[in-house]
Design a protein around this nucleic acid. Structure first.
Lengths: 137, 137
DNA sequence: CATAAATCTATAGTCACTGGAGGAATTATA
DNA sequence: TATAATTCCTCCAGTGACTATAGATTTATG
């Protein structure tokens, strides 16, 4: 039986975050000691790792909740889980595309900066004048 | 003189957001009519475009505030502005790198999914078992 | 058994907005 | 000019995913 602190150390998930996940319904309310402290078992360790992994991959709490509920019905086809992952992949690709545009623009901006006065600072001028941008954003 | 609604239409920044920027000290309190309504001039239009542009580039409110304050002292060297942009560029690059790893992992996960039952669903299994990952994340 | 460390609940704060309530002011139409 | 429609005002609450604090209680250690 692990205390919340032990669970935290083992999973790398902070104590308040574990309580938050419980509140959000991602992990079920664990047993309590006579003194009302949470005690966790092996299953909670795995569940938390699952959640942590999903969050690291950028899945929302909602998506993870869906996946957990799917995983509790092992007989159903897994198209639901697949859909969640695919949608998320699209999302990630969109984000990458946007950030790359951004990277170009920022590169352009800092490369033009000569470290002289604000008056002719490209950073400031670029922000003031959209016309200096190479592409729409 | 533009009403807040006009300013909103011209800049694409929503009305409550304009008020929020005022509250955050990004734009100065505008003139008011006798009936206490805000009236904006040309300068506000430009300032708002500046803010919007910075936000589109992903700069925080704080960073934009710094840039505005820098731009109000045109005689100073622009190393401050340059630093803000550079730091942000590093940040963006880091994000891209992380998202790319993620993209690979998700690709691998969905490509392995055969649409059969949850029991052998790769999505669920991948989330449960870090060992199935190709790289650390 | 005394003290230190960990835990409990409840609440508020973070960021950058967004939305709604309830009421006042302005503008458009009849 | 009267009324209706629209816009505006302030204040407050909610978003997501935590993080932090305060004050009280429980557990572990010497």
């Amino acid at each position: 039986m692990l205390s919340i602190g032990d669970l935290s150390k083992r999973t790398g998930v902070k104590v308040p975050t574990i309580r938050y996940y419980e509140q959000m319904g991602l992990i079920s309310s664990p047993e309590r000691t006579d003194g009302n402290q949470r005690r966790y078992g092996r299953g909670d360790l795995e569940r938390l790792a699952f959640i942590r992994h999903g969050r690291d991959l950028g899945l929302t709490i909602e998506a993870i909740k869906e996946l957990i509920s799917l995983s509790q019905h092992p007989e159903r086809p897994c198209v639901g889980a697949d859909r969640i992952a695919r949608e998320h992949l699209d999302d990630v690709r969109g984000k990458i595309a946007r950030l790359k545009k951004l990277e170009h623009e920022l590169e352009r901006i800092v490369s033009h900066c000569d470290g002289h006065s604000i008056e002719d600072c490209y950073v400031i001028r670029s922000l003031s004048d959209h016309g200096l941008c190479e592409e729409e954003h």
